[in-house]
């Protein structure tokens, strides 16, 4: 028996929004410690690695390890039917071929349930290797999303140059060029708003806007984003 409850459906909506443009389908591996998802995106150039720890749920029970292959577009259709503040319960029996999503309104007067067929997906064992990165930048997630969006207008790729003093984002194309420099925050009064750089050696790397913009779909999940960079290694 698997059962996971969140007091606000909004949390899972945000998680789903963060991955549904990158993945058509994915396996949610449920165990006692929580739910793990790891999958290459549809074009096989980036890895989505997601961990929902059991203690992040308001109620969590998983008697036996369970792999639930889900079509994320169908899951999104179901999640769209929930109000943000509805309580969400995901349920599946052991060896089941369906998962149930139940939404309860705050006043308990509306209860809806949706059943979705599970899929058998090829499982690959993937992961982000432990790496000592040349530069690690922590910055406001909203600011990063804004920069990616703004620079996408000027080119298909963004160059990120990081030194001890700051980080520079650049793009260029037919319309011209654009540069955005962020200095490291001098005093950390508000941690959420700070730009912090840990640098072993400076790096200059180029990334496709398309992917950066996909990654920033996760922005509502956290106030800060961490960019870990080394030469010849994925961001």
């Amino acid at each position: 028996m698997f059962e996971a409850r969140l007091n606000a459906s909004n949390v899972l909506k945000k998680v789903l929004d963060a991955i549904k443009d990158l993945l058509n389908e994915a396996t949610f591996d449920c165990s006692d410690s929580g739910i793990q998802l790891q999958a290459m995106d549809n074009s096989h150039v980036s890895l989505v690695s997601l961990s929902l720890r059991s203690d992040g749920f308001d109620k969590y029970r998983c008697d036996r390890n369970l792999s639930m292959g889900m079509n994320l577009a169908n899951m999104a259709k179901i999640m769209k039917c929930a109000n943000n503040d509805d309580t969400l319960t995901m349920k599946a029996q052991d060896n089941a071929d369906t998962v149930t999503f139940m939404f309860e309104s705050q006043n308990q007067e509306k209860v809806s349930d949706y059943e979705m067929k599970l899929m058998n997906l090829d499982q690959e064992h993937l992961g982000i290797p432990e790496t000592d990165y040349a530069c690690v930048v922590r910055m406001p997630a909203m600011e990063f999303a804004r920069i990616c969006r703004d620079l996408s207008q000027f080119g298909e790729s963004v160059v990120i140059s990081c030194t001890k003093e700051g980080v520079k984002f650049s793009a260029s194309g037919d319309a011209g060029s654009a540069n955005i420099k962020l200095a490291q925050t001098s005093t950390i009064d508000k941690e959420d708003e700070s730009v912090i750089i840990e640098m072993q050696e400076p790096v200059t790397l180029t990334f496709a806007c398309r992917y950066l913009n996909s990654f920033t779909k996760a922005t509502p999940l956290c106030n800060q984003v961490q960019l870990s960079m080394s030469a010849d290694v994925p961001l």
């Binding site: 290459m40 096989h44 150039v45 890895l47 993937l126």
Partner: peptide, 14 residues
């Protein structure tokens, strides 16, 4: 695509 293969290998040999 060579880059694509390189990236896949990177994540597989974790």
């Amino acid at each position: 695509d060579v880059d694509q293969l390189k990236i896949e290998q990177y994540y597989k040999f974790n």
